[in-house]
Design a protein around this nucleic acid. Structure first.
Lengths: 215, 215
DNA sequence: TTCCCTTGGAGAGTGTCACTATCTAATCAT
DNA sequence: ATGATTAGATAGTGACACTCTCCAAGGGAA
């Protein structure tokens, strides 16, 4: 399959495919002549993954490159590759350390992890982008005067725990470690919009139940 | 309080505050003279809300304006204002109707809503941005070959339902309808990063439990 | 009163991002 | 032979969220 067909089958313009090749989101095709390359089903698959991560998962191009590089880093084990890939995911602005609310956020987040009995080394939890994202979000809520302590967070954390079990069960259905790592990344990223949209729909439903006029 | 103090207390540069004033994210101050205005605690509060929505909630400036306008539209009732505000939230790319996976996504999403017995008029569910976001996400998973049917989605939907109950309980603690609407929007947006970060941390924890080497 | 600082307001400029367009020379399909 | 296609490189585009510069008017201290 050549460029035009890859474009045809993926629904991505040739200009964009060339851009992804330049950005090393797609490996180059197999060179046939000085001016043509052959692409295979694996390229098509990869292209669809890249598109899904960027368009549905809203991951920046440069981040997608890092994530995919981590997934394919054969020099490391499954857990390390997955960890690096997830840590490369976007996680919003860093907490503003000059703001006292950030200290509150960090204290609350740390306390939450302790209550959940998660194994993170609490001294190095700050090394996890997802942890800093949590700290920044709690800090923002605190700054606005919305109570956001462990009592409010625990229901969220418990649901997150349950979903993680479901997700990992799904991942384990894949045969090879390579497939498992890719599936874990894809499912982590692509279920995020699923989760957010379901929460918004559920809130609409629940609002309607409580405040609606029956229609 | 004048511009410099508002900037000082919020940690937002005067240039950016002026930009928000131009973009009507902040109401103008009370005019003192031809060249000076007075800002009050309500401006500070609003500025912090705007910052949180934009920086933590990752909402575009133009969207934040729409959301806040809807929240403050006194001509309409609570449910309608909240609905309009939530519908204005960013929801990713529209589903690609030329792709057969989108039809699968729409069918799956519709079936899911039916199973959950949510009250959405199924003919007009497509009018909800959150529904189209769900359709696009399921379609992307389907295109990549990841099974994503109602059996996989139900655990997510049930957790979303439970979280919506928690969220609405929190909202109902606020006294006035105006406060309730603002709280509902703020909590909807600002708990999204909380939920996503907790899910990623829970996945890291669960991965470590299953695949970790003990450390 | 003089001098400098701040302000509101408006417009232009900046840096990032994800493409998108243009161009060239080589090569392929007919 | 000739028109289309390709790899590769460079430049351009439009959206976005600021950020800078300028101006005239006003205020505060010496």
């Amino acid at each position: 399959m050549r460029l035009a067909e890859l474009s045809e089958r993926s629904g991505v313009s040739t200009a964009t495919i060339k851009y992804y090749l330049r950005e090393r989101l797609l490996p180059p095709g197999r060179r046939i002549t000085a001016t043509q390359s052959e692409y295979d089903a694996e390229h098509l698959r990869r292209l669809r993954l890249v598109r899904a991560l960027i368009q549905v998962g809203r991951i920046p191009v440069s981040t997608a490159r890092e994530v995919l590089a981590a997934v394919e880093d054969d020099a490391r084990d499954q857990l390390s590759r997955l960890g690096t890939a997830i840590e490369a995911l976007p996680h919003g602005p860093e907490p503003d350390e000059s703001d006292p609310s950030t200290a509150v956020g960090r204290r609350t987040a740390t306390e939450l992890l302790r209550m959940l009995d998660w194994r993170f080394n609490l001294e190095i939890a700050d090394g996890f982008p997802a942890f800093r994202m949590l700290v920044a979000a709690i800090a923002a809520l605190h700054r606005l005067g919305y109570a956001c302590d462990t009592a409010h967070l625990l229901p969220y954390a418990h649901r997150a725990e349950q979903l993680a079990v479901v997700d990992l069960d799904l991942v384990e259905e894949f045969g090879t470690p390579a497939e498992q790592v890719e599936a874990a990344v894809a499912l982590t990223v692509l279920y995020e919009p699923v989760l957010l949209s379901l929460r918004r729909l559920a809130e609409a439903e629940e609002s309607n139940r409580r405040f609606g006029t029956g229609r």
